[in-house]
Amino acid sequence: MVRIELEGVQKAFGEAVALEGVSLTVEDGEFFTLVGPSGCGKTTTLRTIAGLSDPTAGTVRFDGEDVSDVPVEDRNVGVVFQSYALFPHMTVAENIRYGLRFSEPPRDLSADERVQELLELVDLAGMGDRDPDELSGGQQQRVALARALAPAPDVLLLDEPMSALDARLREQLRREIKRIQQELGVTTVYVTHDQEEALAVSDRLAVMADGAVEQVGTPVEVYEGPATEFVASFVGENNLFSGTVTGRDEEELVVDVAGGSSEDRTFRVADDGPTTYETGADVSFCVRPRDLSPEAGENRFPVTLGTAEYLGGTTRIYGEWAGREIVLRLPEPVSGDLTVGFEPGDATVL
């Protein structure tokens, strides 16, 4: 197992820049996720680690050793693609065995034993003689996973492996991938556009946008302390406010949420961000929908309620205040007008 380091990795396709200087470290044995909207460069980053895409600039290191010039077939990585990419003319067992033509199976196992071991690992024992097209989508993806793991790769790379599956199967399979990853301890990089999935499976994750890394951290760090507006709005729902600092006392900022309208008003937010804001500075902060509540004693403002979506146990309500969309999470649907507020400590200054 290895520790992966990317340093200043750039990639341009002709004029189009796909990656602009990505630097990341994935620790040995870590489950690391690259998450972001489509076109953010997450797949290009993964392909760069695999050696399927040559970076225009920058280096990739495995355990400190520069592998930028090592061709893909010699990098000892296992890749699982969204399309499964099974070899259609080979049986399940032949698919899994294919990588063992080029490297010895681990632990002195024979190729047959290794194939059996992996079929059991992915819960497909007895299916070795099937053709790929006889399997369901979920089963095919397990075969793809087993095939990638058979040569005992140093790195497991998963490129949106579950986007083609339905929601229930996706949750089941991702628990399984996580279990297998922990069992093997293989350094894993996982690419997804689904922030919920990223939060659920990762030891750490990198949020990417426009070919650059916005924030790296544990799921809790990223969710609770988004570093940028993009992260705040991409990871989970958020209400974004921006304004001017008009005063500060103890650990709180007083922010005048501008707009020039008659409904301008000031909020008190906890000053726990990395930057020190002087009076007069522009500042943004965000408040999670679940933290906006009718019971809160501070920072109260009136919201005109609109569409409500009952989600089972909780309701998402879209409303409006001062020309801004406000998202609330309340136990039950409410309509009309509602005054809500939030505790200063629940706001995150960006």
Binding site: A50, V72, E73, R75, A85, F87, A144, A150
Partner: peptide, 27 residues
């Protein structure tokens, strides 16, 4: 042929020629 099928074989250690012989031509 799905490009990722070819790439899968490459990541498993197959050279360009091997991919052609093992994966592409049979298909």
């Amino acid at each position: 042929i799905d490009r990722s099928v070819v790439e899968s074989a490459r990541t498993l250690g197959a050279s360009r020629v091997r991919v052609l012989l093992d994966i592409e031509l049979p298909q």
